[in-house]
Design a protein around this nucleic acid. Structure first.
Length: 419
RNA sequence: GGCGACGUGGCCAAGUGGCUAAGGCAAGGCUCUGCAAAAGCCUGAUCGUGGGUUCAAUUCCCACCGUCGCCUCCA
């Protein structure tokens, strides 16, 4: 199949059967609610996984929970709790949405605080190799030591600095050598949670946890790294800088995939703007399939706007698909479905073009109903229809999420006990 | 300012180097109906602007205008 690689800015061929696909997708920072925008990203990668497996590939999937960072520490006291309980609470909330939407669970679901030793090892090695330095109990990655910084976001180096300075991002931290340097390990501030380290008590910076978790579960390189488009810079740029210089490999992930942002009421759906649509709210009126089909009808790299009118339209499409899966045919000549199958597979093989795949599947469902009315044998066509629908995460007439989805997430959620 | 997207009938939104440019919502007309509702049928697009490439562009290329996203809170 073909996938768009943010790093090379080109479509690249990816053969899911050539190797086991190690996939890492950046998860949430559980300091506040999650919403449809988050769901859209994870449904995108869910379709990717399902399609890779449909093509006979094997996938190992890791998603992270950044349970310790500035946000969780800052928000917890505002809500009369501590960072750990806050993280558990919102992670449990997120998991509920993922189960409801039939999003397959990751094989590994580590939290940042599970990998403190690995994070320390990263910082230590990066200091030894000259890519990082200790300053006042904190450790910083020295951006100027890595010439390729900017390779992912394609922001020219000289301008990065100029922009940073223009925007007043200079010496807010006098411990930094350079305003662009970012923290790997942060010295403990009064009242903050801390772990012991060679540089004194402190906690991980943002970015390093993903490098560490990735390395711990997968080793030096992976096939695909994904996340929301808002993570390209600085988060993923920093991850590359950390990982590549730690491992000494020429690359970190072969392909970098980014899911576009979802808008609502004319602006990017975001916590700070408050223009949120909650999955749990939608589920009061719509079924998981309605939402999944609606999401699949948007290409993952194209920003789009949520509207109830569009969501409503997917309701009748789901009804038809389900009817098509259930209808009784006759014993006439078997309905041909090879054309629909080819179209469906080609669409998804073309940079995960789920809108085309979904449209084709809906049209096929309509055709199937007509063939059944004409007393033709549609059983094989129905079997394939169900299989294709499953690639999009649809359940059709089945009740609730797949057993493996529920049990997998529930297993993970044991580590996020929520009061 | 930099990087990247997008701009299709009132609104939302597919799609394509040439054959009537999908579909949905809204609107108007018609059928049905005592009226209405519901349902069915019918009606609408110089595909942002200006150039270029081409026998042919809405589709490719360039410029411009406009909207949006990112540029250390962010899926």
């Amino acid at each position: 199949m073909k996938l768009y690689n943010t790093l090379s800015q080109q479509f690249e061929t990816f053969d899911p059967r050539a190797q086991t696909t190690r996939l890492y997708v950046c998860g949430v920072t559980p300091y506040d609610t999650t919403h449809l925008g988050h769901a859209a990203t994870y449904c995108t990668f869910d379709i990717l996984i399902r399609y890779l497996e449909y093509q006979g590939g094997k996938v190992i999937f890791t998603e992270n929970v950044t349970d310790i960072d500035d946000d969780t520490i800052r928000e917890a006291p505002k809500r009369g709790t501590n960072w750990r309980d806050l993280g558990n609470y919102w992670t449990a909330h997120f998991i509920r949405d993922m189960i409801a939407l039939n999003v397959r669970p990751p094989d590994f679901y580590p939290r940042a605080t599970d990998v403190i030793p690995e994070i320390i090892a990263f910082a230590k090695t990066l200091i030894e190799k000259g890519f990082a330095y200790e300053s006042g109990g904190s450790v910083y990655f020295h951006v100027n030591a890595y010439a390729k910084f900017g390779q992912l976001s394609h922001i020219p180096r000289d301008q990065m600095l100029a922009i940073a300075n223009e925007r007043g991002n200079f010496p807010d931290d006098p411990k930094k050598r350079d305003p662009l340097d970012f923290v790997l390990w942060q010295a403990q501030a009064p009242g903050e949670p801390a772990w012991d380290s060679p540089w004194g008590p402190g906690r991980p910076g943002w970015h390093i946890e993903c490098s560490a978790m990735n390395y711990k579960t997968f080793g030096p390189t992976i096939e695909i790294h994904g996340g929301g488009a808002d993570l390209v810079f600085p988060h993923h740029e920093c991850e590359i800088a950390q990982t590549v210089n730690f491992t000494g490999e020429s690359y970190f992930a072969k392909i970098w995939m980014h899911a576009a942002m979802v808008g609502y009421k004319g602006e990017k759906m975001s916590k700070s703007l408050g223009n949120l649509v909650m999955v749990s709210e939608l589920l009061k009126k719509y079924s998981p399939d309605h939402i999944r089909l609606y999401l699949a009808k948007h290409h993952y790299r194209a920003p789009w706007e949520f509207t109830y009118a569009d969501l409503d339209f997917s309701v009748s499409q789901c009804t038809h698909l389900t009817q098509a899966a259930q209808t009784q045919g006759g014993d006439g000549p078997a309905m041909d479905y090879a054309y629909a199958r080819e179209q469906f597979e080609n669409a998804l093989a073309d940079d995960l073009d789920s809108p085309t795949a979904a449209a084709g599947l809906c049209a096929f469902g309509e055709a199937l109903i007509e063939h059944a009315d004409a007393r033709r044998d549609v059983t094989a066509a129905q079997t394939w229809l169900r299989r294709a629908a499953n690639v999009l995460g649809l359940r059709l007439d089945a009740f609730g999420p797949e057993a493996r989805v529920r049990s997998g997430w529930e297993q993970h959620s044991l580590r996020f006990p929520s009061a």
